[in-house]
Amino acid sequence: MPTPILVVDDSVMARKMLIKALPAGWDVEITQAGNGLEALAAYREGKAEVMFLDLTMPELDGYGVLETLQAEGLNSFVIVVSADIQPLARERVRQLGALAFVKKPVEPTQIESILREYGIAL
């Protein structure tokens, strides 16, 4: 069965870049969200076993999504994909429960190695 993954970014371009960087043989069902609120709605519909999450977004940002997931005790494999490369940003999202941090522009090999590291079936 395909893995439901959710790609969250306010930029259509950024979502395309991320989707193109996913491992070629990975059997996935992709849902896209344009902000944090849409992301939470898709999550609640079971569409986010793995979530690729941008940080800087209107409506509700990536931190807000992580905080909500944490406060409600929800779990998803969240990989933050952000242009914010401050070490503190990385540390904060880890504390909020994100598994990994990938900087933009995304390197395809990096996504694959993170997925393998966490034993997500490819």
């Binding site: 930029s11 371009m13 870049m17 209107p58 242009a83 914010d84 401050q86 940003a89």
Partner: peptide, 27 residues
Amino acid sequence: QEVTNIAMGQAGAQLAQILEVFVQLSV
């Protein structure tokens, strides 16, 4: 917007390093 966002992240990280504080980025 996305290209600017990526570039801004690099600028913000440098500012954070100079000032030793966390910098919030805008859309």
